[in-house]
Design a protein around this nucleic acid. Structure first.
Lengths: 240, 240
DNA sequence: CGCATTCTTGACACCAGTCAACGTTAGTGG
DNA sequence: CCACTAACGTTGACTGGTGTCAAGAATGCG
């Protein structure tokens, strides 16, 4: 878990040996989750922050009428629920999607101590929360101003780009265990529209989607269709 | 400016006398902006962070085809562009809306120094960025999963609630200098739909909207129509 | 007073949602 | 190994909401 977190933070933050040592001293508990199992629910007051070790997790909101809106997807290295270190009550839920979903739980106390002892760790975590905020902003743009096909292509592009840390993108795969229904709930469109939009993306976007796996065979095409510009993800290296 | 920032941070963070002193020592430059004038543009690399002193500001994204998507509105006390302290390049723009738009610019250096000298100031600012992230999340939910009328009511409620810091909400006003066209660009709907949705909100939502001013005469009604639950804003006091 | 912007309304087309049925796949237990 | 089931994917038909276009009314500013 320490190396996973360190690697993720290192991507945008200058951590030194002492910081690494501090990270290594963090106590944590490993936890495996089933498909669709909640890590935290909206309204709860968790005592831990979460590092994704494997699989996929999602932040989501449940509406009055029971409908769900997914806010973001998260993969290895993502640090979740940082907000709960500062504001006790969760205004969104976190749940696992798919199998092999594993997290490490780190107590708020430990987190606070590490940030206090090594301010640069605090800044690194802060940067991560800023990137996540940036992803939220793009989701607003995407779900508000782009038509279903473009929207979906952009979403795929973001997932793929993040899964590969912005490197070696030309072609490849990434884990993508959502159902079409869930994808629709992320994009703010109905299942039927999701299905039809996907067929167009498959035909014109240089991607395919086998169960649990997104297959990109023409990255440039996907970028073009999705109007994807990764600047907002603030990874050190520009798109390759 | 110092008291404005201090008051805003105090709302969610425990700052002491030394923190206040540190804030007071911050050097800044006051700047007045015209309606629609940019503070920073997407892609630029500003050297300062921004405290809103008066009027209204907005974060927005410009799409390829020139369309605009507004991301959030900001008022007195909001600290903007904190991200640029950590990531040089802006992935969104900030501009003034309406008259009497005044900001204070604080150099990144000064910001960094203050956070280093007084960690609690850093945490307070961090909390602000977390609240803004939370507002983004709600915007995703709002623009993706709620129909125009409800969406608009929710948006109004959020504005009004934030303008009043969650206090004395029963009835009152708040500054709201957008045009209907801009409101549409915030909600992800066309001008025509905006206009029609507004008429319904006016009729059933306990609000009115005079030029530049949002008038709430029945807060409970607005909350009901907009399905507004202010938990996500993480102000200390619950709704009154 | 006159011009530009904003607001408002109607008509129309079309995209996206809903409903419903069927096909496909994966997982379970006999 | 196959039968059975539940979840998921796919398709068609229909409806309604939302966007676009266009024109006129109201407002505000110089």
């Amino acid at each position: 878990m320490h190396s996973v977190l360190y690697a993720a933070l290192k991507r945008h933050s200058p951590l030194d040996a002492s910081d690494l040592r501090a990270l290594k001293s963090l106590d944590f508990e490993r936890r495996k989750l089933r498909d669709k199992q909640d890590v935290v629910r909206q309204g709860e007051k968790p005592q831990t922050a979460i590092v994704v070790l494997d699989g996929m997790f999602t932040k989501y909101v449940t509406l009055r009428d029971g409908r769900i809106q997914y806010l973001s997807l998260h993969i290895v290295g993502d640090l979740l629920g940082v907000q709960s270190v500062f504001f006790p009550e969760m205004d969104y839920g976190i749940s696992a999607i798919g199998e092999n979903a594993v997290i490490a739980e780190i107590s708020h106390q430990e987190m606070r101590a590490a940030m206090k002892a090594r301010p640069e760790i605090g800044y690194a975590i802060w940067r991560q929360t800023l990137v996540h905020a940036s992803i939220f902003r793009q989701a607003i743009v995407n779900n508000s101003a782009r038509e279903p096909t473009v929207r979906m292509a952009h979403f795929f592009a973001e997932q793929y780009y993040r899964a590969h840390s912005g490197e070696n993108l030309r072609s490849g795969e990434c884990y993508f265990p959502l159902t079409q229904s869930q994808l629709g709930e992320a994009l703010g469109i109905s299942v039927v529209t999701t299905n039809r939009a996907f067929q167009e993306v498959r035909n014109n976007g240089g991607v395919d989607w086998r169960p649990r796996q997104l297959v990109v065979h023409d990255w440039a095409k996907l970028v073009e269709l999705g109007q994807f510009d990764p600047a907002y993800l603030h990874l050190a290296r520009p798109a390759g």
